[in-house]
Amino acid sequence: MSGDMSTFFSISVIFAVLMVFTALYCILTSRNLIRILIGLELMTKAVTLLLAVGGYVSGRMALAQSFIITLIVIEVVIIAVAAGIVIGTYRHTNDLDARKLNSLKG
């Protein structure tokens, strides 16, 4: 790995980790279910960046792209299902507060 490439790799990893921290902050401090989903989405963006940088630096971009496409497919399905659950929860509790999800009856 050349010097420039090594620097780019290090900086990209730092930015990806910062993005993960941002998303974690969002998930931990938010009580709104939609905002928690947005945090989850941001975390997958950081993982996508890590996969792309890993593939770019190692010269295995085709493999990295296949992993990224798989990740995107999984991501969109998780969001679609979670959005359905959020709407169902809202229609039962009339609220999007995650603290009120302490009843598993029904």
């Binding site: 971009m61 792209q65 990224i68 995107i72």
Partner: peptide, 10 residues
């Protein structure tokens, strides 16, 4: 980063 297909999907 020369990943156009992944970019289009994203």
């Amino acid at each position: 980063m020369k990943a156009p297909l992944a970019g289009v999907f994203e």
